[in-house]
Structures are given as structure tokens and as C-alpha cells.
Amino acid sequence: MSAFLKVLEMNVRVFFQYRASFGISLVIFPIVLIVNVMLFESLYAYSGNDEIRGYSLTQMIWYFAAVPFVYVFIYNFAASRLSGRILAGELTMDFLRPLHIYYYEFAHAAASRIIGVSVEFLPTLFIYSLIYYPDFLTFASFFKFLIVAIFAFILMFQLNFIVGLTAFVLKENSAVSDIMNITLGLLGGAAVPLDFMPEAVQRVVQFLPFQYIFYEPLQYFLNQPDKAGVTPLLYTLLVQLIWIAALYVINRLIWAYFSKQFCAAGG
């Protein structure tokens, strides 16, 4: 455990060295917000409705504006780091370290997100609020969002780890990454709220983990009425946990299998 924390701490300090590149987000993100404000104001005005598919104008704008926020909470390089080492045959150090590669990579990912959330999310949220105030936000909903987002990060890490492991089988696994991103966009709520998807798609999506990475955290962020109280939160966390546990087991099994192969085949 303390080794894990130490890796975490060291990663934080490494990322601190590259702090210059974080300032850019403060410029990029508001542009996204402004485009969305104009788009939806015009859309809502033209449609004559206060609500579209359960989203008020403010909520709609903020849904799209907050997608990058969720990205800040979840994205990590585990897939490319793993693939890179697997394809180069450079797993020696990973085998000689008395800390399982899974936890090592998790510490890496967690550290990069801690920095990201502190440096990108909070300041940008503040700036956004000055441009277009999020009238739906309360302390409770924000807090709930944070918990769900953290679980979303862990879930995303599992998925990324699996994608990284595909390098054992595929030489060019950037395609897998791309497919993952598109899936998250369309089936996870990153590109468009799932409420806009056809009925059939919405039903299928219930059985997939993707909506728990973008769509669900965003519902809590927007303080939607069906997320009021504690019960919905517990339900969401439970489902996230189930997915996390299932994928964790799959990850460990796949790794165990392929690392044995790796060790048998000459490394």
C-alpha cells in the first residue's frame, strides 16, 4: 500500500514539472462553452420549448460544456503505456518489480488525474460559471457528481487496461482505442445525451458500462430530478462497482495468461 502511495506521490511531482501545458485548457474550454451557448440558445428559441428531452436550456448547454470536465476526471494513458511496453517486449522491469503492474499503472493514472482535476477542472468550472451561471448546481449534487466521477475514473481505467492488453494479440491496436472512443461518444453519452438516441439504442445501452462513464456522472452534475436523494446515487455506484469488479477480474486473468505466455516465449 505504501509503495502504491509512493508511486502516486512521485507521479504527481513529475506531472508538476509539465504544468505549463495545463494553462491552455483555460483558453480552450471557454470556446467550447461559447459555441454551445449560441447553438442551444438559437435551438431552444426556435423550438419555442423550455425543455428538450428533459433538459432545460442551461442544463443542455452545460451537458456539452461538462463533457470535457468528465474527460479530465477519467482519461489516462494506461492503454498506450501498456501497449508500448508490450509491443517493444520491454516488460522485464515490470516483472522484476515487487509491485504488480496493475497497481503500478493505476497509481500512474490516478496521479495524473489528481493533477488534472485540481488544475483544469476547478479553475475552468469557475470561469464557466462566470460566463453562464449553472443555476441547477447545489452542493449536494456537486458532491454526488464527484463521487460518481471518481468511480467513473476507476471504471475507465479498467477499460483502458484491457485495451492496452490487446497489444499481446494485435500489432496495431490503435484501432481498438479509436473504437473505444467512438463507443464512448455514441453509447456513453460523450457525444450526445443518451436521451436523444433511438429507443432501441437506449435499451441496449443499459447493459453496457459506457453510460456510467459519461452519461451518469453528467446527470448528477446537472442535478436531474431523477437523481434526487440518496437512493439513485447508491444504485449508480452499485452498478459502477459491479462493472469495475467484473472488469478487474477479467484484467487480472488476461494479464496472468499472457504474462505466462510471455515468460514461456522468451520475453
Binding site: S2, A3, L5, K6, V7, M10, V14, Q17, L99
Partner: peptide, 18 residues
């Protein structure tokens, strides 16, 4: 084994924990 961006003494600290 050493972390590129940090002083070696930090990697030593990691070894201590591991």
C-alpha cells in the same frame, strides 16, 4: 529503474517502500 524527471533519491525512496 530511475525515474527520469525526478532526483535519484526519490526512486531510492520508492525502493524503500517497495
Amino acid at each position: 529503474q530511475l525515474w527520469w524527471d525526478l532526483p535519484a533519491v526519490d526512486t531510492f525512496g520508492l525502493q524503500k517502500e517497495m
